[in-house]
């Protein structure tokens, strides 16, 4: 029993004459980890930016928990969708703790006056924010570096910090744009664990990634974007088996090629074997993950309305 958290309906994004994303329908359900893959230039990041309000889609709507998202990044975050960036965009000259505190912005509301007057409410809110931020730093394992400048962290920790900063806004859906880019296998493995842990907290996750092993291990569902259009969507086996996906990545055999059949078979086999070694543990894991989502959904369902309620409470 799953409820959709994020629904993109018929999203099209045109830049002048170029259509970067063409009528994509897309859904993320609560408690799900969904992957979005595609060759370079397929429009993944553009689609991401449409979801988070950085771009206003030319056509179509994006709704979060049944409500259409306004096309402003800060309102999208406020509604409960947080994101990270493909190239890390931390506040380099702020400390680790301050970075996470900035993420708390939408969940606190002390304005200039309360900052100047420093009433008891202000101090309480600051303390609560700091406690929550420290919890998140514990969660990603950076609590001991709270007073370091973000720019001085090693690469992997910067990635983690960016995720913690996004989590600080208490999202119901987390969008990760290539979270393992430039990471070594151990770090990728750790990120995988982190994403599972985030999912276990009842936060749905949408991941863009190039690392197929990572995606197929991680995701309950994978969607493939090719030249702005959604090609396939389904479990990792479905996607891996789809010839069009293979063709999109490796190119189609040209017509009239003498060894047409064998050629395709060979390529398909090649990718299959390559993927199989990657996804060897995947097939048993995927159904298990599917089962997992069953009981899990109860929690997200519980937290979902709550977070909307808190959003409502903040607005007036």
């Amino acid at each position: 029993m799953t409820t959709p958290v994020l629904e993109a309906r018929d999203v099209t994004m045109r830049f002048g004459g170029l259509t970067a994303v063409r009528s994509v329908d897309f859904t993320v359900n609560s408690g799900e980890i969904v992957g979005l893959i595609g060759p370079n230039g397929a429009g993944k990041t553009t689609f991401f930016n449409c979801l988070t309000g950085l771009y206003v889609p030319t056509e179509g709507t994006v709704s979060y928990q049944g409500k259409v998202l306004p096309p402003k990044p800060h309102l999208v975050t406020k509604a409960g969708v947080a994101r990270t960036f493909q190239n890390i965009r931390l506040f380099a000259n702020m400390t680790v703790l301050e970075n996470v505190l900035v993420g708390r912005h939408t969940r606190t509301k002390e304005g200039l006056w309360s900052a100047l007057l420093r009433g008891p409410g202000f101090k309480k809110a600051e303390r609560a924010s700091e406690e929550r931020a420290m919890e998140l730093l514990e969660f990603i394992g950076l609590a001991h570096k709270r007073d370091h400048l973000a720019r001085n962290l090693p690469y992997g920790e910067q990635r983690k910090l960016e995720i913690a900063r996004a989590l600080a806004s208490e999202p119901g859906l987390l969008l990760l744009d290539e979270p393992t880019a430039g990471m070594n296998p151990q770090e990728t493995r750790a990120t995988e664990e982190l994403v599972f842990a985030i999912r276990d907290q009842g936060i749905a996750v949408l991941v863009i990634e190039h690392d197929m092993r990572f995606i197929f291990n991680l995701c309950d569902r994978v969607a493939v974007l090719v030249q702005g259009e959604k090609l396939v969507e389904g479990t990792s086996e479905v996607v891996q088996a789809d010839e069009r996906v293979v063709a999109a990545y490796l190119g189609e055999p040209f017509e009239g090629e003498p060894a047409d059949d064998t050629g395709t078979a060979a390529t398909a086999e090649e990718t299959d074997t390559a993927d199989e070694t990657d996804a060897a543990p995947a097939p048993p894991e995927t159904p298990a993950a599917g089962e997992d989502t069953g009981p899990d959904t109860a929690e997200p369902d519980g937290t979902g309305p709550q977070s909307t309620a808190s959003t409502k409470g903040d607005t007036p």
Binding site: T52, L54, K72, P73, H74, T77, K78, A82, R83, F85, R89, L90, F91, A92, N93, M94, E98, L101, V102, G103, R104, H105, T106, T108, E110, G111, L112, S114, A115, F122, A125, E126, S129, R165, A166, S169
Partner: peptide, 24 residues
């Protein structure tokens, strides 16, 4: 040294990231 001051510095550091963190 407050929420608003942090958001100023965040805007100075990276405006796109700051808006993505919910700062108007």
């Amino acid at each position: 040294d407050s929420r608003i001051g942090r958001s100023w510095i965040a805007i100075r550091e990276d405006e796109t990231a700051a808006t993505a963190m919910g700062i108007n």
